[in-house]
Simulated assay, not measured.
Amino acid sequence: MFTIKTTTAQQTEDIGLKLASLVTPNDVILLDGDLGAGKTTLTKGLAQGLGIKRYVKSPTFTIIHEYHEGRMPLYHMDVYRLEDGGGDDLGWDEYFFGGGVSVIEWSQYIQDYLPDTFLRIKLERRDEQADERQLTFQAQGTHYQQLLETIKEQLHE
């Protein structure tokens, strides 16, 4: 586990951009944090790093946005609306093992459907006036531990 702070939206987006160079097919990234914490901002950077040109916005009302034009598909999920259940028929495994990278906002609401291994990034607002965020990275599984070590090195350069 490690923590890094950002003071601008662009710095948060840049972390996603760096992460994009490291992800591989079937990677699962969980983004947890309150409203306005920077989850979609980080995803925008990841999409840009994957070569996705379309505008990335939170899929709050559609639950899942798929982007196929990058070096691998991006499955961007906002499962906030599933707080009270209802995700049984969404075919989670087809996304998690569909050859792309799955980014899940509000992952706690589909805990029972998540794979055993993943990278979790918790985003917290520290100072709204200064746009300061704290990002805490946690790895579950050997592959994600290696990914975490690599991103940690890159972010501290």
Rank of each mutant, 00 (worst) to 15 (best):
G38E: 14
H65F: 10
Q138R: 15
Q145Y: 13
T8I: 01
G141K: 07
G99A: 07
D88G: 03
P59F: 10
V28T: 14
F96R: 10
T8S: 06
T142P: 03
H65N: 14
E128D: 14
Q154D: 06
T3D: 08
E157R: 05
V103Q: 10
R133L: 10
L31M: 04
G85D: 15
V101G: 01
Y67H: 02
E83R: 10
Q108D: 15
M72N: 09
S21G: 02
Q146I: 01
Q48R: 15
A37V: 06
E105G: 10
F137D: 12
Y144R: 03
D127F: 00
T117W: 09
L17H: 13
G16R: 02
V79M: 02
T6V: 14
K57F: 13
I104F: 11
D88Y: 07
A9F: 01
E132K: 01
G141Y: 11
I52Q: 14
E83C: 03
N26H: 04
E13M: 00
R71N: 14
D88L: 03
T60C: 00
R133E: 12
Y113E: 15
R125Y: 10
L31I: 14
F2S: 13
I151G: 08
E66K: 11
K18A: 06
A139D: 02
G86M: 13
H76K: 04
T142S: 12
L22H: 09
E105V: 08
K152A: 11
F2I: 03
D112T: 14
G91V: 10
A9D: 07
T43H: 05
Q48P: 00
Y80N: 06
F97D: 08
